[in-house]
Design a protein around this nucleic acid. Sequence first.
DNA 1: CCTTCAATTTGAAACGTTTGCAGAACTCCT
DNA 2: AGGAGTTCTGCAAACGTTTCAAATTGAAGG
Lengths: 324, 324
Amino acid sequence: MSRALAGHEQIALETRKRVVAAAKELGYVPNTAARTLVSGRSGFVAMVLPVRGPHLVDSFLGEFVTGLGEGLVQHGADLILAAAAVGQSELSVLRHVVESGRADGVVVTRIAETDERLAYLRERKFPFVAHGRLLDADFPYNWLDTDGAHAFGEAFDMLYELGHRHFGLLTISEPMTFRHLRQDGLAAAIARRGDPSVRLTVATAPRFDRGARIQAVNRMLAAPERPTAIVGLFDELALTVMEEASRVGLSIPRDLSVIGFDNIAASAYAPPGLTTFDASIRQCAREIAEMLLAVITDRSKEPLSRLVRPTLVTRASHGPVPGK
Amino acid sequence: MSRALAGHEQIALETRKRVVAAAKELGYVPNTAARTLVSGRSGFVAMVLPVRGPHLVDSFLGEFVTGLGEGLVQHGADLILAAAAVGQSELSVLRHVVESGRADGVVVTRIAETDERLAYLRERKFPFVAHGRLLDADFPYNWLDTDGAHAFGEAFDMLYELGHRHFGLLTISEPMTFRHLRQDGLAAAIARRGDPSVRLTVATAPRFDRGARIQAVNRMLAAPERPTAIVGLFDELALTVMEEASRVGLSIPRDLSVIGFDNIAASAYAPPGLTTFDASIRQCAREIAEMLLAVITDRSKEPLSRLVRPTLVTRASHGPVPGK
DNA sequence: CCTTCAATTTGAAACGTTTGCAGAACTCCT
DNA sequence: AGGAGTTCTGCAAACGTTTCAAATTGAAGG
């Protein structure tokens, strides 16, 4: 009867209709476990929940998961979220998910500079799609990334046109690949411009240490030659810049331009409104789901990759260079 | 060998350790499908992803899912997220999840006034825990809810002490139970106070129609006798009040006090900082996970219920009544 | 009316566990 | 040495599907 329900095989259409009707009548739903066991396909895609500190301010996870769900459901797949127990590494959770055969593929997010997960999945030949990418992969794999490099270049160009010459970049010490991609994009745009008067000051802070971050911002703001425009690696950093700037009496955007990345909800509310880039996480997640399902269906597929250009969200935190 | 790994039965501890070690050595992980098929327990808990409009501003889902994951992983369970396809009801997804035996229990959120889901699950005798509760359930069930009634009472008392006598409540037209609970909590506190000079003006707006919401706020602000304190059913509403108030030249908290509920990230950033209640969603979700696992383990358990008191987050959006 | 072939149906094996049971092996006591 | 436990080993059934192969049916051709 599975044949009839599936539709293919050589079954008379008439019979098929009859079977489907009967199944509906009886409220029959095939048992997932039995189906998985024999077919070898579970219809699940897994993701291991990132380990988070006690506070989670962004809506990233919610949007991402929503997008994945939307992408998966179109093909009848569902999502498994596996958390790591305290003291358990994300990698070991991933390994367990893969070995236990609960999922047909996984999506891995937050790619680090040296990421064991990708190496493992590749070696295991297990279908996966990465959200983000490695800097120097010596093997092909499926990924979708936001073009942070392009965005940061765009931010630079916009600010340069507004007369800014001294730039600040507030970045993190956590070894995620996106910080390099974005910083390199900024540097590349500067180089492209070829103006020797352009200067870039970089400050680094640990990602989750708010105190250290504030210190780093203030060091930058208090420097004898303060940048006239500061770009935050992501919105939370840019928002800290805005907060500290107004705390020390700088007016934004009159005295200082600030630009962020991510377009988190708070950026719209924080005065005077943070100019930032929107990466449309939900849509990206939906595409990731589709890529993954494609890879699962045809495992010999050429590796897919896709670079999504974020869109500039213009608010009021940037303006002409002071004194112009 | 399953016996040894499971641990119970009469197996010498020594043997057990040996088996576990060997399993680890070989990288053996039992196949989930086979295990589920024979044991009848999948080790999964499911939740159907709420259907969302295109924009998702809060971090609720992310926090909730993170909390669930944390609670589940302690007992070796994982989470399944099932999305609804376009045009498919949440109920039918739920039904499918239950019938297909992919999960041992489900958590259902966002309880509506007449919620078919609870009735279905109950009739089906399927383990579940609700986040939120019905207003007039004629049957017992497991739930965990945030005590919005208490919070709104607390908000009233605080504002009353500050001299406020004319209150505004901005609520939604969507038939969720929490709107009644919170509004009733406010009304109860007013009644408890027994001061006939206290007045309450209620404005209702559709949840997802920003334009209508803004209109409702402005009607309230433009009324001949404007409330001196407005409580938003949740933060987004309160933030709209703050935005519109400052747009029409009212200063917060000098001219108007505003209090919200949820403590979303933007509330800290929106000037002058929204006073609100924090429901610690993540922690609640963790408890929900634990409740659900308890119910799954012992299906004859007495229904569990828990009311969590939210904590007041004092910021700068409330103050003494104007003219005092 | 028998044969042949395709179209469709029916039967049986397999998926990888858990679990119940029977018996073997070992340990310890009397 | 015999018996009572205790622990271990091995076998077989069962879980609910999918899928392969064989059997049946029906129609067309001779």
